Simulated scan of single mutants.
Amino acid sequence: MYKMMVSDLDETLLNDDGTINPKNVTAIQAAVAAGFKFVPNTGRSFKSVQPLLKQLALYNCPAQYVISYNGAAIVENRNNQVISTRGLDFTLAQQILAAGLIDSTIDAHIYTVDELYIYNISPSDQAYMAERGVTYTLLTQPDIAFLADADIMKVIFETSDDDLRLAIKAAVCAQVGDQVEVTFSSQRYVEFNKKGTNKGQAASDLAQQLGFTLTDVIAIGDNSNDIAMIKAAGLGVAVANAIPAVKAVADHITHLTNNEGAVAEVLTEYVLSNQ
């Protein structure tokens, strides 16, 4: 019997407009009431997940968790206690930021363990952040010297141009080599974490802390930053709207999209039906 689900948020658990399908809420609450662990596993900050946790009745709950920043932080919901982090070296973060700004249309996000800073935010990204209730501080210059002593989780770049995202990846990797883990998300972001940091590694670390094995874990997602956790889990699930690369590595593909309650579909079939 599965004991934990790690779930991506945007385009997986959440509807396209950032809301959550009521079917997902009902299924998650029923599973958690029976002792199941439901763990958002997201590229976002754990702070931005708090309204969602309130909807799911997981807010400030002991022994329930959030994995943030593509696996760079594991946080217990009670008092937002940070359990572990896998941050970027400051010099590496600086190099990534400088190398990735290859075009004046690109904006950059720098995440510390508890803050988000954005340089050159685009109108579309501003709307995306507002829709999801994400708070941030704007930078007027691409200078992060003031974060020299901070715990930097990841650096990401936003553009809706597919070719430009690939060019950013190439430019950064040419500068820093294999020191980074590179993923894509939401058809708009290219993301850089410390090498070895990903949603799959974090899911494995959390499962081990809880005394579970990966065979006890369901992972569900839609985009390339979800591949590591889908491959690692005992049951790796791609939602119906997932990109082809995710569907190719999944054990199961849902009939429903993110807008139709795909997470509820999986919980109903693999968790709630066994209770």
Rank of each mutant, 00 (worst) to 15 (best):
Q95I: 06
Q275W: 15
E158H: 13
D143M: 03
T254N: 07
R165C: 04
Q50T: 13
V271K: 05
T42M: 10
T140K: 06
A33N: 14
Q179P: 13
V66H: 11
E131D: 12
T183M: 07
Y128E: 09
A245M: 01
L235F: 02
Y136I: 00
D149F: 08
L139A: 06
A171F: 05
T257H: 07
A171C: 03
S104H: 08
V113C: 09
K194Q: 14
V32K: 05
A57G: 06
F38E: 09
E269S: 11
V49K: 13
D178T: 14
L214D: 11
I118W: 04
A202V: 03
V172K: 00
A219Y: 01
C61R: 15
Q209G: 01
V49L: 12
G177W: 11
F36G: 05
Y128C: 07
Q29M: 08
Q275K: 14
T215I: 05
D10Q: 05
K3T: 06
Y69W: 01
D226E: 09
S124D: 15
P62D: 04
S185I: 04
K37T: 04
L235K: 02
Q94N: 01
R78V: 11
V75I: 15
E115T: 14
F36T: 01
N15F: 06
F36R: 05
Y111W: 02
Y270V: 03
G211V: 07
T112C: 07
F146K: 08
T112N: 09
L210T: 03
A73Y: 02
N41W: 10
I152Q: 01
N258L: 11
F192T: 02
A27Y: 12
K247Q: 14
R78D: 10
I243T: 12
A108M: 00
V182R: 03
V263C: 14
A127Y: 15
R78L: 11
A248V: 07
R44A: 03
Q209F: 11
Y136N: 00
P244H: 02
